[in-house]
Amino acid sequence: MDLAPTYAAAPPYEQIAAVVSVATQESVHRDVIRVSGSESGIQVYQIYTDTLPNETPLFSIMPLPATTRDDAADDINVERLDLLAEKYVNDRWSREMEARLQIDHRKVEALFPRVTPEQVECLAEVRQQFKESGDNISQMLDDLGIR
């Protein structure tokens, strides 16, 4: 059971100990150090403020959507590896990470099921052929009076 409190973007009863403004070439970054007055620890905010444009920039770089089953699976596998790396290398794990890993597992299984629909279809055909062969043999035995 996770006992961490519901997150507040700006902890309401903490004191701002220092506000440092640093001008950069394109924008102003403010480092706001909030020192907790409760037991919730120290939070360091490095805040970059901007207003979102009303329209998507003409030449914005957008990731291309995964177009094939392999691409989709690759993306999911990259995420799985990231999560597993954090688990085993950084020794960091949470319910939210576990949940995502399970979702990813199921997505990959759906994309690459252990038995594909094509294989099931093929098996059904083979089964039908066996059945037809059996019927033929029965008919032959009947015709020859062996049975």
């Binding site: 997150y7 620890g41 120290i42 905010y45 490095q46 805040i47 403020t49 207003t51 979102l52 998507t56």
Partner: peptide, 21 residues
């Protein structure tokens, strides 16, 4: 996410939070 939220929430900031633990 930005596209979905920019209508009702047009101002954007980035913050880094060190959560307890």
């Amino acid at each position: 996410f930005s596209t979905a939220l920019r209508g009702p929430y047009p101002y954007y900031e980035q913050g880094f939070v060190i959560a307890p633990g």
